[in-house]
Simulated scan of single mutants.
Amino acid sequence: MDLKIFLQENKYIDFSSQIIQSKSHELFRNINSNTEKAKIAFEYVRDEIPHSFDIQARIITAKASDVLKYKTGICHAKANLLAALLRTQSIPTGMCFQHITLAADDSMGYCVHCFNAIFIDNKWIKVDARGNTNGKNAQFSLEKPLLAFQNRKQYDEYFWNGIYANPHEDTMTMLEGAATIQDIIEHIPDYVIDEPDIIEQENFKACSQ
């Protein structure tokens, strides 16, 4: 399996930026274990970078360096930051996508939710750094994924199968054009059409259980 694509820099996972490099040195100083690095980075992004909806952020971010600079982002932006931090350590990190309701029910429609896949101990694990507010309980786990959202049978919620090396381009375009939280609510994409870079059906069944 060629994992180089999950280590590359791009416009949104801009890990060579000074702010990302500095935070990486701070977080991972004297840490040698990739597992420990992944846990530290995940918990930092989950707990120390508030989700934009939770704080009604006035600044909309997309690329990792801006998420870190302004200390906020939606799930996609936070996933970019987590990927950037771990790619500085040559830890392959990708994106996974989930179709969920925008509100507690389907009254406001649906959106594409983003979380990360990290390759450590010769396997992919799934983590969701969205932020544990309002009863969410996403955790770092080397076994079963412990994500922020369960797929609910009464709604059309599901995972897009596979792992993507790059952010969801339509959502990135939306974020770059958004000026307010309301802009995101009104225009956030609700579908992924791109093919994943890695397909792994069995692991995604575990996410749904």
Rank of each mutant, 00 (worst) to 15 (best):
D156S: 12
K136P: 07
T133N: 08
L142K: 05
G135H: 11
N137I: 06
Q154S: 14
K153W: 12
P145N: 03
N134F: 14
S141N: 12
R152L: 12
Y158Q: 08
N161P: 03
Q150A: 09
F159P: 07
L142A: 00
F140W: 10
K153N: 12
Y155V: 07
G162Q: 02
E143P: 00
K136C: 10
I163A: 14
A138T: 08
K136Q: 10
G162I: 03
P145S: 09
A165P: 03
F149A: 07
A138E: 08
Y158F: 15
Y158C: 05
S141Y: 13
S141G: 06
A165K: 02
F140S: 01
L146T: 03
A165S: 15
Y158T: 06
D156R: 15
N151Y: 07
N161T: 09
Q150T: 13
N134W: 14
E157D: 12
A148L: 02
A148K: 00
A138Y: 09
I163Q: 06
F159S: 05
F159V: 02
K136S: 07
L146G: 00
D156C: 13
S141H: 07
K153G: 00
Y158G: 07
D156H: 15
S141E: 13
S141W: 15
A148P: 04
A148I: 04
E157C: 10
A165H: 08
A138V: 04
L146E: 10
K144F: 10
T133S: 11
K144Y: 05
E157A: 09
N166L: 15
A148Y: 04
F140K: 00
A148R: 00
G135N: 11
R152G: 04
Y164F: 15
P145I: 05
F149W: 11
E157L: 06
Y158H: 14
Y164I: 01
N134L: 13
A148S: 15
S141D: 13
N137A: 10
E143V: 01
Y158V: 11
Q150C: 07
G162E: 11
E157K: 12
L142I: 04
R152H: 09
L146F: 12
Q150M: 10
G135C: 06
I163R: 00
N161F: 12
D156P: 09
